[in-house]
Amino acid sequence: MAIFSFCTDPATLETARWFVCYLTNGKHLIAYTSFGTVLLLLAITAPTALAFGFGGAIAARSRIAPLRWFGKGYTSIVRGVPDIVFFLFFVIALDQAFEWTRHQFFCPDWPDAIRQGNDFVVCQRAKLPLSNAPQWVHEVYGFLLAVLTFAIVFGAFAANVLFGAMRAVPRAQIETAEAYGMSERQAFWRVLIPQMWVFALPGLSNLWMILVKATPLLFLLGVEDIVYWARELGGTKGALFDYPHPDWRLWYFLGLLVFYLTLTRFSEIVLGRLSQRLSHGQATLAGEAQRKAAV
């Protein structure tokens, strides 16, 4: 499966062509798609984590005590634990939790125990994904589990940021809304939430940066990400392989370094623009400066 016709016998190629063939062999082509995996994960996780954070922040502000405890407990416990520790056992735990739920639903009459010694055995119908599902379904499921784990962890941080941002909106704004006859709910959704974002943005921008830099841990969640491939491709390749080479992991990791530096630089620029946009018309220093500049 070579792209170029001259790649049929790698051992005879001179250096330049050898590298062209090496970098386009099947394994490398798969590895390149893993950059897409990472970007896709970021694209899905960011809004999901934001939703979790929003829920957590609202819960933490709630008047109902158990809900408030849940919100506060969620944010403080998850923030207290290193993300890597979560990643090491959370995926298996989530997977088992889902399968257990499905098992109760699909096979209520199952005679055997689910936990048999060390084994976790649910009925065939409850398996997630079903064991005869094609490989891509398993991979998508694994990916979604990773997204969910990331979202739960980063949702806690987002909740913390949003909670702070909601409190930062000047009290007078809400009082004015109430004076105009808005109900509490209306004041929350029409005044507090739109104004909150500008206060939340610096914290959320940082969170995005942390999220970007947490993605090298994806391989712990069983997703074949760029770090997995950098290790795999860079490792010493003996005579069993068409393209033998010594330990090149250093070069592959330098490649990853460049990728991440580019990604964070790009994010910084976009977030800077967004911050400008959001400050527009806000009762903050930056908003005031914009207003003055326009006059």
Binding site: F157, N160, V161, F163, G164, A165, R167, A168, F199, P202, G203, N206, L207, M209, I210
Partner: peptide, 8 residues
């Protein structure tokens, strides 16, 4: 006050 302007 945890109004983190710059949490990492």
């Amino acid at each position: 006050r945890y109004r983190p302007q710059m949490i990492r």
